[in-house]
Simulated scan of single mutants.
Amino acid sequence: MKILEIKNLYKSFGKTGVLHGVNFSMEEGEVVSIIGASGSGKTTLLRCINFLERADSGQVLLDGQVLFDAENQGRLTGKELRKKQLNFGLVFQDFNLFPQYNVLDNVMLAPRLLAKERPDFKANRKAIFSEIEETARGLLNRVGLGDKLTNYPCELSGGQKQRVSIARALALKPRILFFDEPTSALDPELTGEILKVIRKLAEEHITMVIVTHEIDFASNVSDKVIFMADGIVVEEGPPSQVIDHPQNERTRSFLQKLNEK
């Protein structure tokens, strides 16, 4: 069964249409990279799937069950929204860390807040928080930041901040991890740090959707590549097709222009 299905998503901001009927699906454990020029709708698509924006029409299905249906679903309450969002983790291009918290606290913050909603929280507060801290420490070790637990974001490089962001997203144990141009704010050396972490996650069969401009990386790490233009999926398939032997003229033109830079 497909873990994620996106059906006919449309989104406009005022009179400006951004998504014009986006459709795609993926299996559990797959890595899907989304490529395309700026303004093609990639980030808006991720934000709609993650409920940071509300699609005007269309559906989002998880494990074959409708998670979102614009036609039959009113505005969600805050609690309903949080419950749906917990299925997905999102790593932003600009890190979005809390500057007043150290690295460990940034990773623990959301799990601690969610833990307070557990019926057994008052009786088991110490044990629950201890487990959350152990998990956070393990995740930071996993991304190579075990020696930075007490540092604050202002003391970190861009690559280190992004690795904290990845650990923070993983702390909530999402079904699917989304990346929105995770290396766009980094120089080439720091970009390599992040791509190495994502590659390791792919080897661990973490289900991921990656919006990226790193075409070589997308080619090497992805099970499927989606090329978007003007708010639609123009072409999708394995990297050997979409990147190495594109079938659509728009895909060929996009890749050719990248090669000329």
Rank of each mutant, 00 (worst) to 15 (best):
K161I: 06
A123S: 10
D187W: 07
I132C: 07
S219F: 15
T16I: 11
F13M: 06
L86G: 04
G74C: 11
I35E: 00
M1K: 12
E131I: 04
P238I: 05
I166D: 00
E214G: 07
N124L: 08
I232N: 06
A167E: 00
D120G: 05
S130E: 15
A115C: 09
D216H: 06
D94T: 08
K7H: 14
K11V: 07
I166R: 00
K196L: 06
E235R: 01
G17R: 09
K261L: 14
P119S: 06
D120A: 06
V22K: 03
T16K: 15
K126D: 08
E28P: 04
V31E: 00
M26P: 09
F98I: 13
F178Y: 11
V164R: 00
Y101K: 14
E28M: 07
L114H: 14
L177G: 02
L149K: 02
R163N: 08
F129T: 02
I206W: 13
R250S: 10
F179M: 05
R252L: 11
R168V: 06
G192R: 13
T150Y: 14
I176K: 00
A136N: 01
P188R: 00
D147H: 15
E249Y: 09
P99L: 11
L114T: 03
A70R: 06
Y152S: 07
Q162I: 13
Q73D: 15
K42A: 03
I215T: 02
Q247S: 11
T44L: 10
K116L: 11
K173H: 12
Q247Y: 07
T183Y: 07
E27R: 14
F179L: 03
P238K: 08
N248F: 10
L67I: 12
S240Q: 12
V18W: 07
M26W: 07
G231I: 03
A218K: 00
F95T: 07
F227Q: 03
V32E: 00
A110M: 14
S33Q: 10
A202H: 01
L145E: 09
E30F: 10
E260Q: 14
I132R: 04
L172K: 13
I194N: 03
R47E: 04
D120L: 07
F217S: 03
D69I: 08
V22W: 05
A167I: 02
V107G: 03
L109F: 15
H205M: 01
K196W: 02
E71F: 13
G64C: 08
L139D: 06
G14D: 12
G17D: 13
V164H: 02
R252Q: 14
P239M: 05
E181Q: 12
L90S: 01
K116Q: 15
R82Y: 11
R47V: 02
F217N: 04
I206H: 10
I215Q: 02
L140Y: 11
A110W: 06
L140H: 13
L140S: 09
L45V: 10
E5Y: 15
L90H: 01
Q162G: 11
I35T: 02
T191C: 12
K161C: 14
E131P: 07
R163Q: 03
K42I: 05
K196V: 01
N87F: 12
A127H: 09
L67C: 05
D120H: 09
S165R: 04
E28K: 14
E235I: 05
N151T: 04
E134T: 12
T77Q: 13
F68V: 11
L172T: 13
N220R: 12
